[in-house]
Amino acid sequence: MNSQIFWLIIGMGVVTYIPRMLPFVIFSQLHLPPFWQNVLKNVPYATLGALIVPSVFFIHEDFLFGAVGAFTAFIAAYFGANVFFVVMCSIAVLSFYSFFF
């Protein structure tokens, strides 16, 4: 293995691990004020919004590709399908879509 690449990977690993691990260590001792605790409880839903939009529309040159997949997932999830089924549904619909269009 190229030793330059080896140390590069180690360096990338360290700087990626630190922000992942640090909050668990710091905020186990230090307690945040209630306002910030509530803010942190909001973060999952806000993050999901930002993870989905706009990226889902750019997974293919054809804008409709992502839109069809997202719409399928939304409908499946809305009618109570579990997450695994939601994922499988949108893969199936898009396989069909890309096979025929």
Partner: peptide, 21 residues
Amino acid sequence: FLQESMGIALYALFIGLLVPS
């Protein structure tokens, strides 16, 4: 076509997590 259609999986996962909430 398989590689293309599986590209939706992570987004479908996120949507599946968000919608019930």
